[in-house]
Simulated scan of single mutants.
Amino acid sequence: MTTHFDLAALGMLVAVAETGGFTAASARLGRTQSAISVRIQDLETQLGHKLLVRSRRGVTPTDAGERLIGHARRLLAVEREALTDLGGDTASGRLRVGIPDDYVDAYLRPLIARFAAEHPRVELELRCDLSKRIEPALAAGEFDLAVVTQDPNRPMGEVLRREPLVWVAARGHRPELQETLPLALFSEGCRARPRILSALAMAQKAHRLVFSCSHTSGMLSAVEAGFCVTAITESAVPASLRRLGPAEDLPALFELSVGLIIAPQPSLAARRFAEALREEMMTTQLAA
Rank of each mutant, 00 (worst) to 15 (best):
Q46C: 04
L47E: 04
G48W: 09
H49F: 14
H49P: 00
K50D: 05
V53R: 14
R54L: 04
S55W: 04
R56G: 15
R57F: 06
G58Q: 07
G58W: 08
T60W: 00
T60P: 00
T60G: 00
P61A: 05
D63F: 01
D63V: 07
D63G: 08
A64L: 04
E66R: 15
E66L: 12
H71G: 01
H71W: 07
R73D: 00
R73S: 04
R74L: 11
A77I: 02
E79K: 15
E81F: 03
E81I: 01
L83A: 12
T84L: 12
T84Q: 13
D85P: 00
L86C: 09
G87W: 04
D89M: 02
D89S: 10
D89F: 13
T90C: 05
T90M: 04
A91S: 05
S92D: 10
S92I: 00
S92W: 01
R94D: 13
R94Q: 12
R94M: 09
V97H: 06
G98I: 03
I99L: 06
I99H: 01
D101W: 03
D101T: 05
D102C: 10
D102H: 14
Y103T: 06
V104L: 12
V104H: 11
Y107W: 12
L108P: 02
R109P: 01
I112Q: 11
A113D: 12
R114H: 09
A116E: 15
A117S: 14
R121E: 14
E123L: 08
L124E: 02
L124F: 02
E125P: 00
E125V: 14
L126N: 06
R127A: 09
C128G: 02
C128Q: 13
D129T: 03
L130N: 03
R133P: 01
E135D: 09
E135M: 09
P136V: 06
A137Q: 14
G141Q: 11
G141P: 07
D144H: 15
D144N: 11
L145C: 10
L145P: 11
A146K: 08
A146W: 08
V147N: 01
V147Y: 04
V148L: 15
T149P: 00
T149Y: 09
Q150R: 13
D151A: 09
P152V: 08
N153E: 15
N153W: 09
R154W: 04
M156F: 06
M156E: 12
G157Q: 11
E158N: 03
E158C: 08
L160S: 09
R161E: 10
R161T: 14
R161N: 07
